[in-house]
Nucleic acid binder design. Structure first.
Lengths: 126, 126
DNA sequence: TGTACATATGAATACCTCTTCACATAACCA
DNA sequence: TGGTTATGTGAAGAGGTATTCATATGTACA
């Protein structure tokens, strides 16, 4: 099928790893999720939503971006089912919908807080 | 400090979330890590290294990319202390060095394998 | 010593992403 | 009804990123 044109040193290990390699489709989906978490402003939006729903203008205020930028980011997150919106009149309340992303966020943030010991030039939160 | 020029609906919630918001520096670091995991080829490299070290040409073969591309990707991962290299003659054996990234990978891959039903690109398009 | 080999790297290109601006949509209120 | 407010969206520009090609570096081996 997909023959590799390059040399191989440890053919057995290569074959074994290839066997365990997830499907390209699954890897692409996983990479997409990580990509959605790779922007500081989107990260701020999701962190803000960890405690519960917020409307767009509050999310914009908390994350320090324009409401248009926040709306664009929320649209992207919504398209990937990571957040969901509840309409109440002319307001839109967003919530974190994906429990898996919540786990990734918790793990990642716990790590950065935990490894602040490795960056002793700065102390904890504001 | 950083005053928000936009309206706010729930001022208390906004203040509380702001209090809990991690430092911009930490958020940027976290976003960087996620960004490094947001490319399918880099993801393949890291998955291949979950079981142990491999040389560059084997990594290129396993991940289906050119050795130059693999080397570029490994250089990036190495610069962020996610992988480390061991030289043996003219070969370079890379290993996964960051236990936190290993956890993120395990968590993410376990999730994608268990949820085949979830697929994005379907715009909610309100 | 010279040649072949494994890896590293710089530059160039094509692609993608984020932000902003302008405007659209839709709900609320006088 | 018209005006104001909250959010949504398209287009465009700036900036970032990934891949490739060519070449450099350094090791091994004849």
């Amino acid at each position: 099928m997909d023959s590799c044109t390059t040399r191989v040193v440890d053919a057995d290990r290569v074959a074994a790893v290839r066997e365990r390699m997830p499907l390209a489709e699954d890897l692409a989906d996983t990479a997409d999720v990580f990509g959605l978490l790779s922007d500081p402003n989107r990260l701020r939006l999701l962190v803000a939503l960890l405690d519960g729903e917020l409307c767009v203008c509050d999310l914009a205020a908390v994350t320090g971006q324009s409401e248009s930028a926040a709306s664009h980011a929320l649209r992207l997150l919504r398209a990937h089912r990571i957040v969901a919106a509840r309409r109440a009149g002319r307001m839109a309340y967003y919530r974190l919908e994906d429990p898996h992303v919540r786990m990734l966020l918790d793990l990642a943030l716990a790590h950065t807080e935990h490894t602040e010991a490795l960056h002793p030039e700065r102390d904890g939160n504001a």
